[in-house]
Design a binder for these strands. Sequence first.
DNA 1: GTATGTTCCAAACGAATGTTTGACCGCAGC
DNA 2: GCTGCGGTCAAACATTCGTTTGGAACATAC
Lengths: 217, 217
Amino acid sequence: MVHNDTVERILDAASALFAERGFAETSLRTITSTAGVNLAAVNYHFGSKKTLIQAVFARYLQPFCETLEANLDARIGARAGADELLQCLFDSMLESAERVGEPPQRFMRLLGLAYTQSQEHLRRFIVAEFGAHYSRFTGLLKAALPQLDPVAFYWRLYFMLGATVFTLSSFDSIRAILNSEFERDSSLEQAVDLLVPAISGMLRVEQRPPGSGVPAP
Amino acid sequence: MVHNDTVERILDAASALFAERGFAETSLRTITSTAGVNLAAVNYHFGSKKTLIQAVFARYLQPFCETLEANLDARIGARAGADELLQCLFDSMLESAERVGEPPQRFMRLLGLAYTQSQEHLRRFIVAEFGAHYSRFTGLLKAALPQLDPVAFYWRLYFMLGATVFTLSSFDSIRAILNSEFERDSSLEQAVDLLVPAISGMLRVEQRPPGSGVPAP
DNA sequence: GTATGTTCCAAACGAATGTTTGACCGCAGC
DNA sequence: GCTGCGGTCAAACATTCGTTTGGAACATAC
């Protein structure tokens, strides 16, 4: 599995097709014919379809983790706010996607699939590859939100993850709808600019003591 | 496709298996053997696998739409707040799931799959079945958030949808993690109680004029 | 020139898929 | 008693899937 033209053509095609249709719905024959390579090339270079799926993720995850770590080191002090952390996270995502040379929404799409499709091997692979970096970020975010009890914080982490992955992975569809509805084009950067304050506000909502009302607007 | 024991056994099994593994990953043989019926029964009663998938959704969507409409009529005045509307939405979801007799997180899971799996026929079916009720709710919610411009509102609608579908559909996994981490069990109702104020706060965050900072906590 | 190892390729493999078939059963209506 | 009909069933259907195979093509090393 050396640096190789065939290998990269397969990764490119697989990445796009997986993001578009899902793993089970994308056959190796579709991938190889899109990539313009022989069917047997996948099993020769990657071993199996499962390993190919993992390789597609590794190509995104590795630059993303590196970029995130570097940005956290450079821009985040010991006591960072939730906004700075979120901005740092999304900047790293956009940066690393550019480094890989594929659209960020594709990465988000794949990440969403990793959660929703039944690919236990993939979840294990991602945790092994990404777990440490993920923990560093959530630790910093937790310290930035001391008013939340651990359980509430955990849930809000998932709210954030869901809002992010869901919207950014569907960015192309949403943009198409917005274009036809409001005749105004929008970029992924603009979507992130709307997402960051919204999520930041969601994270900072004061915890409701059981039975009380909600704060006035 | 009359009211029939075999039909309901198939729907039960298909609903559970689809939610667990996805559509493409669940074969008709797995469904029929789980349901204890003959393989040919699916094509006899439903016509095809696609139609079966739609029937699974119809069994959830129809009671949910009825319940939501009734609750909106009963509890929501001309000028309702975002909180009331959200509470009404989630109450309707929990109510209708109980009426169908299946766990709400299963419905959320299926809804998430409808978005992420490539099933164009299913999206068309859901829009046709559910579009009018969806528009009524979003119209009310938009009126409750007059400070948001239409595009920002649209995006926040998706943030809300993502946070909801993602977390509630993964409720079982998240609960398992929380149990092992904090030794405290949690119910779906408690998760909804955490979700409603968080989403409500996210929706009510003031729109940031381009280039300005964020509001203080 | 021969040997060696890597990469590519057409073809086939066995297994699994959604769907169709034709016989069979029970039961109503005349 | 026979007929028609809704429902079930085992078996087979044609595809499609991931994977394997054996050899051709090519470059490099001796």
